[in-house]
Write a protein that binds this DNA or RNA. Sequence first.
RNA 1: GCCAGCGUAGCUCAGUGGUAGAGCAGCUGAUUCGUAAUCAGCAGGUCAAGGGUUCAACCCCCUUCGCUGGCUCCA
Length: 626
Amino acid sequence: MENKETASSKKIITEKGRTLKDLLAGPDIIAARVDGRLVDLSTRLDEGKEVEPISVHSKEGLEILRHSTAHVMAEAVKALFPDARPTIGPATDDGFYYDFDRDKPFSYEDLAIIEKKMSEIIAADKPFSRKEISKEDAIRYFAEQNEPYKVEILNDIEDDTVSLYTQGDFTDLCRGPHIPSTGYIKAFKLLSVAGAYWRGDERNKMLQRIYGTAFASKDELDDYLDFLEESKKRDHRRLGRELELFMMSDEVGPGLIIYLPKGGMVRSILEDFEKRLHLKRGYNIVYGPGILRGELWKISGHMDNYRENMYFTEVDNQLYGIKPMNCLAHILIYRSKIRSYRDLPLRYFELGTVTRHEKSGVLHGLLRVRQFTQDDAHIFCMPDQLIDEIVSIINLVDEVMALFGFDYETEISTRPEKSIGTDEDWELATSALKQALETKGLDYDINEGDGAFYGPKIDIKLKDAIGRKWQCATIQCDFSLPQRFDLSYIGQDGRKHRPVMLHRVVLGTIERFMGVLIEHYAGAFPVWLAPVQVVVMSITDAQRGYAQGIVEKLKENDIRAELDARNEKIGYKVREARSMKVPYMAIVGQREMDEDTITLRDRSGRQEKMSIDGLISRINSSVPKI
RNA sequence: GCCAGCGUAGCUCAGUGGUAGAGCAGCUGAUUCGUAAUCAGCAGGUCAAGGGUUCAACCCCCUUCGCUGGCUCCA
């Protein structure tokens, strides 16, 4: 979303007795900031205050607009469905929602009716008015209105005074601020209905949520709706089928991926790339088994903290856990020898396939599956090497994300409720992560209670070509498992010391990363990743042998080439190669055959005649240096 | 797992309480062609599965499975 600076964002000084609305002219100004607080335009202030107008085009202004639109929606819903009890209705990153408690869920047909009612409320241009009352009065009011959720929220508020906002027939408990009147809503749309737990807790009652969005102008709303359409076109599930990359099958089971030859090719390229990348950076490639004894998962704490995500099986009366993570084998590799401080850090890398029982409702194409392969590594190091190791992982992530054209954001997730280890260790681990990010000069958010059960983590959210965020890479700092498995190294002093362990993935998982890549590139992979790099196509049968020879020569030079010598018109072949998003077409007719050349057509439709060696060097030079 | 919607040919989608349709893809033949669709013919389905209502169910009801959008959870 844009954050437009407008001419009216300069500060002004208030005059006594006049409302901000009198002072801040302009249809785009919907609120103001005074003393760092956002306030309504109806506010009357003392003389001499410095006031910053808030435009609907700013990020904060848009949020206010959307929040107000949520109130209007609640008014419409209450008018149309008196049995619906309002709960909460905030603005979100790209719109708003309002949750209602209602026995009968809303249907998509209801949305049109609600939209119509909202349009009437907007056309009536009803003012939003703010009233401050005591908490007790507010509780009494909402109890009378038969709105128990508002009463429950009020009971959790510590302030003695709360604010209510009223527009038309609807009054809501709300901090504000709001737009001056409903007529300020110029463009809105209701998008979907969904169930949502009261206060986001699955033990609570499920409420009925309506999602919508609002924008400062009709054009911006249309742009957003176009963006949603564009996202649909890029959907990796659709492209995965169209480009013959992967499939899923009811017969196999949900959340399980079958790679078709083209998707298998892409995966194999990614995996080769990763192996070279890690070998060059001092990692050792290892492999662990897919099932490990139950006893091991008890020691690690998975049995107590991760059991609901694990599958178990029994072999010869022994309990085995199917691995949901790759760390245990790596720990055993570390422990298989006595380690000296001189050996550290040790970095074990595995393209490890793990299996996790994900709840059925969360599965989603390649992005959320039940069996997946992580580009996983575990680094064992001395405590004083920790920061350097984290920094070099961040550097690696940085390099790889740049290669694929992703920008990213970082956040730190701290200790969750279900976890192992001492507070001191968690503190140490968390501060190491913070320090590493600070060393790199990276900003980060804190995500309280969202760490892994064995340690805090840095989550890296990458941003794709159309601005969507995806969680792929993560770096987790762990003091607990080395302790649980009694890992040690002999220090310079000849005594045993405890190493620290880092768990980290860069792409995250091959599945998710491929899904994200497909959407990022809209299926048009860069040449080095494209499953088919060039299709050699003949104009007529007379060039079949020539074209065949070119394909063979390309393949000898490690180029992924296919022949299209079918008895079809060239336009048909071009069309098909374009829809399969093949980067290059090498077209050969009589002219090219006579000159021993090809006509190369790229994705943009640009064409040039060149030698076959020219084509080989062009394609091979596209492979990134790592 | 929870809420809602959906499930018809490989894909995209029509369709009706009374024997199942189109386009594309596929196959066969003709066409030998210069940059996004040559023409003709053929074939393709236990209408997700199981049960029920009915003289009769793809259609109505129930159950299960799967998918989609959310919620919770997550790489």
